[in-house]
């Protein structure tokens, strides 16, 4: 959580010792995250998503060369899990990039424009934030259809207002800093100031927000796929795996537990990275 992130409102925290913790958080988070991403990417490059073979469905672990057994359609569970991680992570990552792009643009524009523009944009951001995103996402997906691309676009499109609000607050603060004021007084054009001073100043915030958005979008993707309105038939998705696996929770527990653990690990590691980064950037600003 980026509670401590805000430099315009919150006071500086003068806590000693607590930051040893934050750097550990970052390290642990990045280790788990890197491991998960490497596994998923490795499978994407060299492995497979598992072939359907209904005659050997729901095999227990360590049978017929299946390390973790097979799923309800006879696909190798390990391959399936890694492929799903790749699929779900990619969606969350791409959607987070979209969200970051729109959010930063709107936030910076809002903070840098005239009073009227600012009012309109901030009102717009406030309104969007107050509307439950999942409700919007569900409706949009119903219209544009399911699958990788629609899901990515929808999630990116509904999640940016929060980011825009943070960016807006940060940018407002940056515009009052001496080096920006100096540039402004010496007649540098606003667009240039934004590119050369504001955006670099936002870097840390954006990194932190990226981690948090990724975590949230991963949960959202698996939730939508779980409800049957995200991934398509046969798409490897953590949400799909959960929805399929829940039917066998006692007879073949791994089918549900593994994707469950994968989601929790990924989300927690992203949250850890974000937390660690945010404390770190605060140390730097101090």
């Amino acid at each position: 959580m980026t509670v401590e992130l805000d430099s315009t409102i919150g006071r500086m925290i003068r806590r000693r010792g607590a930051y040893a913790n934050s750097s550990t958080k970052f390290k642990v988070g990045s280790c788990i995250g890197a491991l998960l991403v490497l596994l998923a990417a490795g499978n994407q490059l060299f492995g497979s998503a598992g072939e359907v073979d209904i005659a050997s469905k729901r095999l227990p672990p360590l049978t017929d060369g299946h390390l973790l057994g097979t799923d309800h359609l006879g696909r190798d569970l390990l391959s399936r899990l890694l492929a799903s991680m790749g699929w779900s992570f990619s969606i969350a990552l791409l959607a987070a990039v979209i969200s970051l792009t729109i959010g930063t643009t709107v936030g910076v524009l809002a903070a840098s424009s005239t009073k009227i523009g600012r009012t309109i944009l901030t009102r717009y951001i406030d309104l969007s934030i107050s509307f439950p995103e999942l409700i919007l996402a569900v409706t949009i997906i119903a219209v544009i259809g399911r699958g990788f691309l629609p899901l990515t676009l929808t999630l990116g499109f509904v999640s940016w207002p929060h980011l825009a609000r943070v960016v807006y607050a940060q940018t407002l603060g940056l515009w009052t800093r001496e080096f920006v004021l100096a540039a402004k007084l010496s007649g540098v054009r606003p667009m240039r100031i934004i590119l050369s001073h504001i955006l670099p100043g936002l870097r840390n915030t954006l990194l932190v927000m990226f981690a948090f958005i990724f975590a949230d979008l991963l949960v959202a993707e698996s939730g939508l796929s779980f409800l049957g309105i995200g991934a398509l038939l046969g798409d490897p998705s953590l949400g799909n795996m959960l929805a399929d696996g829940r039917r066998f929770i006692f007879s073949s527990s791994l089918l549900m537990l593994l994707p469950c653990i994968a989601v929790i690990l990924a989300v927690t590691s992203a949250n850890l990275i974000g937390d660690g980064l945010s404390s770190r950037s605060k140390n730097a600003t101090r």
Binding site: V52, D53, I54, L73, L233, G234
Partner: peptide, 9 residues
């Protein structure tokens, strides 16, 4: 859903 995937296979 399962049947379609088996057919595809």
């Amino acid at each position: 859903a399962d049947i379609y995937q088996a057919v595809a296979r």
